[in-house]
Simulated scan of single mutants.
Amino acid sequence: MTNDLKQLVELINKRLSEQQYGQKPQELYEPIRYIMSLGGKRLRPVLVLMAYRLFKDDYETIIDQALAVEVFHNFTLMHDDIMDEAPLRRGKATVHEKWDPNTAILSGDVTLVKAYDMLLDAPGDLRAIIKNFNECALGVCEGQQFDMNFEQLPTVSEAEYIDMIRLKTAILLGFGLKLGAMMAGANKKEAQQLYDFGVFVGIGFQLKDDLLDVYADQAKFGKQVGGDIISNKKTFLLLKALELANPEQKAALENWITKTEFDHEEKVTAVRGIYDEIGIKALTLAKMDEYFQQGFNALNSLDIPQKKKQPLTDLANYLIDRER
């Protein structure tokens, strides 16, 4: 992580620690303070600030609007964790585990309201900003529904999977960059180029997340390693393995997928072993790099001196090399 990125993350965390979400009833607001205190990369608000800085220097004036994107992201996490029945988030108990699902749903709703509230003083065309935010939020929900639909389907194509992660994960990164550009007075072409950069990098980011879920060091990852394997989640790795497996490998994979009672560690080790035989790690890295390169191409097309764009390049490289 570069010094510039560290400074922006520290600035964001400081402002987040000062945010007020409400006091009573405590059961409604404490879960919001809890999930916002769990940390994370703060990637989305950093992108807002970095995009704004390409055009203007006074980025400290739009920190609250940058935080709106992070607050919205945590709203989606609270609800996603309920749907996924996830026990851990950033190495700590998820909100629905620490409290209960109903509390997590309601606190998540309030978190979404807070995100809108933080956008109200955004400089620039507020109507256009809210319209773009709404389009992004709808897309994220569509992506989550596709992800849930995939659980019931016998097979999913690579193209369908990529489109799902584009909606569920990548477009929020793209929106963050576009928001920063819009607030700084960038023209539509510049804002779109930054949006495209964010979407391509976001797809690569999620592919790396899929990879880390299987191959990460548990101590560094912060989530349950192998969770996707345990839950039979249709990630790029599983879909590619089912596509390329020989009859023996496919039978073994399908046996693990259909088992209802199993030792978690045994299943993760066995499925990871099949992935290793097929070479899934290298294939995932290649696909990830393909999308990151498309992101770099979109950024390079932006007619702004490379020195100004370097922080975004550095951030993308950090995401490529991350271990959690």
Rank of each mutant, 00 (worst) to 15 (best):
N74S: 13
A51S: 15
R44G: 13
V71W: 01
G39N: 14
L43Y: 04
D57Y: 00
M50C: 11
L77V: 12
R53W: 00
P45H: 09
M50W: 04
L67F: 02
N74C: 07
R44Q: 07
V71Y: 00
R53A: 10
I62D: 01
G39M: 09
R53L: 03
N74L: 10
Y59G: 01
I35Y: 02
V69N: 01
R42C: 13
L49R: 07
H79W: 04
M50Q: 15
D64R: 05
A51G: 14
K41W: 08
G39A: 13
L77Y: 03
L38T: 14
V48E: 02
R44I: 13
D57H: 06
R44F: 13
E30Y: 06
I35V: 15
R44T: 13
D64T: 07
G40V: 06
I35Q: 06
V69T: 15
Y34T: 10
M50V: 03
M36E: 13
L43R: 04
L77F: 03
Y34F: 12
A51I: 07
Y29F: 15
M50N: 14
G40W: 10
D58S: 10
L43M: 09
D64C: 00
H73G: 13
R42F: 15
T76F: 03
G40R: 11
K56C: 04
F72Q: 01
H79F: 10
F75K: 10
A66G: 15
Y52G: 04
D80N: 11
F72K: 02
N74E: 04
V48T: 15
S37K: 14
F75Q: 07
R42I: 12
M36I: 10
D80G: 13
E70S: 11
E60D: 12
L43W: 03
T61N: 08
L38E: 02
F72N: 01
I32L: 12
V69Y: 03
D81S: 09
L54D: 01
Y52Q: 05
